[in-house]
């Protein structure tokens, strides 16, 4: 073993690397926000009075959870144009990430919803709230809080999974690492640095989610 580590050579490509990192951050932010929204809607549909909506949501979750992400991504990017739906690689990447995250979050949030004590629903009904008001005001906030740590983990999984969109040439972090090592053949250094960036992103994401959670779910007395 006499491999000479050469991280310095990566500096020539620091713009590529940082652009890739920034792209990964953007992909993650957008797909996390939209994915959570989709997950809430999916969970609402999953427990809706309307049977068609329930079945639709269930089918969506099963379809996504039982197929590989890369196939979902290729379907969106290469498959959909066949029926006239064309988009850029970035758009396709975001869409695939959102659809994927939304399906897992549908299942996670549904579990939170199901843990609602029946008495809470009865109290809300008795007070005159409509089904929609009950869902939004009474059921959803505690349900989300109950499964918050699972939601956070899933969002981080999707951030890491965003590496796959390098396969359709979205210039994100993994794409950048691929690119750099194909130029300078420093595979070890390139991927190690990329891994380190992912690690830091995951750490920061968890930190941010924890701060948001602590604020949103605080039960500290409110003053008048």
């Amino acid at each position: 073993m006499s491999y000479q580590l050469n991280f310095g050579a990566l500096l020539d490509y620091q713009d590529v690397l940082l652009d890739g990192l920034w792209m990964t951050v953007k992909l993650t932010l957008i797909s996390t926000v939209l994915g959570i929204l989709l997950g809430v809607l999916g969970a609402a549909a999953r427990r809706h009075r309307n049977a068609a909506l329930r079945h639709l949501s269930k089918a969506y979750v099963e379809l996504i959870r039982n197929t590989p992400f890369i196939v979902q991504l290729f379907f969106v990017f290469f498959g959909l144009p066949a029926i006239g739906i064309k988009m850029t690689a970035i758009e396709a990447g975001v869409l695939a990430l959102v659809i994927n995250l939304g399906a897992y979050l549908t299942e996670i949030i549904r579990a939170g919803i199901d843990a609602t004590p029946k008495g809470q629903l009865e109290a809300a009904r008795t007070l005159g709230l409509s089904s929609r008001q009950i869902f939004i005001r009474i059921v959803l906030p505690p349900a989300f809080q109950r499964v918050y740590s699972a939601v956070v983990s899933q969002c981080i999984i999707v951030m890491l999974g965003s590496a796959v969109v390098s396969q359709i040439s979205v210039p994100e972090l993994t794409f950048a690492a691929n690119f750099i090592q194909s130029r300078n053949f420093l595979s070890f250094e390139s991927y190690l640095v990329a891994a380190l960036f992912y690690l830091i992103l995951a750490f920061l994401m968890r930190l941010a989610f924890n701060l948001i959670g602590a604020r949103a779910f605080s039960r500290k007395e409110k003053t008048l």
Partner: peptide, 30 residues
């Protein structure tokens, strides 16, 4: 049931306050 809520209230054995709302918010909601 919504119409009835103007005329009849109910209190349960298990309180059933909404845990994510303050006392004031629980009361003002409806």
């Amino acid at each position: 049931v919504r119409k009835l809520s103007h005329s009849v209230g109910m209190v349960f054995q298990s309180f059933n306050l909404f845990p994510h709302l303050t006392v004031g918010e629980n009361i003002m909601l409806a």
